[in-house]
Nucleic acid binder design. Structure first.
Length: 430
RNA sequence: UCCUCGGUAGCUCAAUCGGCAGAGCGGGUGGCUGUUAACCACUAGGUUGGGGGUUCGAGUCCCUCCCGGGGAGCCA
């Protein structure tokens, strides 16, 4: 008999079906048993009556425990008493694999315990909902750029040098040579933009920072578009359209998951164009006016971000950060060379920076001077500066962090729940 | 790296002033034909993170090490 998935059960009312899955929970009242079956597409209640099945089957059902895998057959029945409105009136039950002492019980658990059991934790309802939203967003990211004529040009993971020189890199041995795990694909996107015009890369990136916060992972996914002949104002529009697209898609496809997560959907529905744009100088003044202890010229810390975002119901774009605190490849603002043509998008509700981007320095001499000023080895960047040597052009791009975006859209406070197997400072397993 | 909180049964936690180490869940046994994190009864389950010290007596106080959570810096 063909397997039916729980997701499709409503259309099968009155039919005989076969379900295959795992016991999510079960209750027994003597000669009547209620099994909650999970198959990855949903959860359904299956009823088992001693009167209506053979002794053999009844005996087999005595063996059930949480997460035992089973094949069940029976008739799909509409019943208001069943969660979801449908249940399976079980006629046949076969245990495929027993589960003894499944560690994650229907009661509460601590963070450390759950992270140690991440491989099992992803079976539970809440984690399942989060990871389904992540799946939707990954697809939406690709659809957005593919639909606008971008070419996917994936960047390498093994890289010979730091792209920014600021953050800490994971070092590995590469046949006797030092190699570093990529912390950004951006330097590779610039040559790619010269080749294809509109490009993006989307993959894992690695930061060896010893950060222990709910916004940090040592391995996370980032999508990085780069566009030839694009300047800062259009870049901000691109980021805005992109984010609206992501939120809209999640609302379209994952309403049920967002409800499981108790996300306030009104807050997501408010995410519409245009996003407020704040010049760095104005943002600094706003902080001063709010009495936040902030030094002009610095980057925003978490409390600064929260104070800035508090006045708005949608993401905000802060642009033209001081050049001194930004990467060497960012182009200075012609109106004030102490500032850079950079921008960050800050998510509402305190979820922090989800996008960082800039217009790139496109003048060969200026770029070479900046590499020297940052004490970076010119030899490592010869290929990179070739973009300016052979037909230079204005261009811009940004990076969006997938996990922070999932965290914001799902309303999950900690990014470690937004990636299937998080890599954290003190956690490499499972 | 710094600040801060914590480590007691498989899990989540409690244990008064330093005075017999306990509960719920999970496990086991039995009961229950409409349960919704079902319920009821019984039951097994402990080197209180490791080491050292104070004390008649330490889960509790002191020292030290280990492990983890939250946060900061930095960043997506």
């Amino acid at each position: 008999m063909q397997q039916t998935y729980i997701r499709d059960l409503a259309a099968q009312a009155g039919q005989e079906v076969e379900l295959r899955g795992w016991i999510y929970n079960f209750r027994s009242s003597g000669k009547l048993k209620f099994i909650l079956l999970r198959d990855g597409t949903g959860i359904v209640q299956c009823v088992l009556s001693k009167k209506e099945v053979s002794d053999e089957i009844w005996q087999a059902s005595e063996d059930l425990a949480q997460e035992t895998s089973v094949v069940l057959r029976g008739k799909v029945n509409a019943d208001d008493r069943a969660p979801g409105g449908f249940e399976l009136w079980t006629s046949d039950l076969r245990v495929v694999g027993r589960a003894v002492d499944y560690p994650i019980t229907p009661k509460e658990h601590g963070d450390a315990f759950l992270l140690d059991h991440r491989h099992l934790w992803i079976r539970s309802k809440r984690q399942h909902a989060i990871l389904r939203v992540r799946h939707t967003l990954v697809q939406a990211i690709r659809d957005f750029f593919d639909g606008r004529g971008y070419t996917l040009i994936d960047a390498p993971i093994f890289t010979p040098a730091a792209s920014e020189g600021t953050t800490t890199l994971f070092e590995t041995d590469y046949f006797g040579e030092k190699a570093y795990l990529s912390q950004s694909g951006q330097l590779y996107m610039e040559p790619a933009a010269a080749a294809f015009g509109k490009v993006y890369c989307f993959g894992p990136t690695f930061r060896a920072e010893k950060s222990k916060t709910r916004k940090h992972l040592t391995e996370f996914w980032m999508v990085e578009p780069e566009v030839a002949f694009m300047e800062l104002p259009e870049l901000m529009e691109l980021a805005e359209d992109f984010i609206v697209h992501l939120v809209t898609r999640a609302l379209e496809r994952n309403r049920a998951d967002l409800e499981i997560l108790e996300r306030d959907l009104a807050k997501l529905e408010a995410v519409q164009k245009p996003f407020p744009r704040l010049h760095y100088n104005d943002a600094a003044n706003t902080l001063k006016a709010k009495g936040v202890d902030f030094q002009y010229g610095n980057d925003f810390g978490a409390p600064d971000e929260e104070a800035l975002v508090a006045d708005y119901d949608r993401p905000i774009i802060v642009h033209r950060f001081p050049a001194a605190i930004k990467a060497f490849y960012m182009k200075p603002d012609p109106e004030d060379p102490s500032l850079s043509l950079s921008m960050d998008v800050l998510a509402p509700e305190g979820y922090g920076e989800i996008v960082g981007g800039s217009q790139r320095e496109d003048d060969l001499e200026v770029l070479e001077r900046k590499i020297r000023e940052h004490n970076l080895p010119m030899s490592a960047f010869d290929w990179y500066v070739d973009v300016r040597r052979y037909g230079t052009f204005p261009h811009a791009g940004f990076g969006l962090g997938l996990e922070r975006t999932v965290s914001w859209i799902t309303g999950v406070r900690h990014v470690r729940e937004t990636i299937p197997f998080p890599r954290l400072m003190h956690r490499l397993k499972p």
